[in-house]
Design a protein around this nucleic acid. Sequence first.
DNA 1: ATTTTCTCCTGCATGC
DNA 2: TGCATGCAGGAGAAAA
Length: 273
Amino acid sequence: MPELPEVETTRRGIAPLLEGKRVKKIIVRQPKLRWPVPRKLAQILPNQQIQSISRRGKYLLIKTKKGHLILHLGMSGSLRVIPADTTPAPHDHVDIVLEDGQCLRLRDPRRFGAILWTENNPTEHKLLASLGPEPLADNGTFNGEYLYKKSRKRTRQVRDFIMDSHVVVGVGNIYANEALFRAGINPRRATGRISRARYDRLAAAIRETLSEAIQAGGTTLRDFSNAKGDPGYFQQTLNVYGREGEACTVCGSTVRRVVHGNRSIFFCRRCQK
DNA sequence: ATTTTCTCCTGCATGC
DNA sequence: TGCATGCAGGAGAAAA
């Protein structure tokens, strides 16, 4: 269940296998994803050449001459490039078959993912237009100053704040918990009651956590796998997520779990204030 | 008093 | 049974 590192790992895996290739057809076994898979893709995609695969937040953008496919993996989605004649497994909902005999296959048991199409600039699509900055971009849009200014007079918990894609993209529950641990900030602290200096540390912690997770090929807790079907191994590096009752890797006190907004928060009371 | 912004909750579908 | 890597949409509250 992909956060930014898993989506980026997927992008890097599929891009060299898709770029420059021509689409033969699309096979939709189950059109009911988060939104219906557009039926017009059956007419649009054949013979379209794939020009590039990019990423905005957790969205993957597949560029063709006629427009962009917008893919989201939701909670349980994964993509692989495999021979097109491979027998589909349960929850293998969509194939984009290439003329070279391979196909891009989407598997998504929970069907919270999406496949959409736009003929316009994809960053202007309704779902992408109001997204926050890319945390790993080198353009100075994401830093402590940005988080500090965005958080003034706000009352919600900082864990929820950094998980909000309109604040910053790509940070889901695992990396939110991990980044807050690295920054020494209690996930339940109100956003408006965190200093500028601590936001500098948090922005850096988010960047470091995401970068290291990409280096590790993502985090595989249940079913994430890259384009070749291999798992990531960042889960071996997790300091707090999923470690309720275990010893803090820094101070040895017990890692706590509390549930907020239907999602678990993991943290160390001694290290995070 | 009305409009805008903010926060929080729900629902989606399946598996462990 | 409870819980799960996401997120749009909407209700209601708070601010402007």
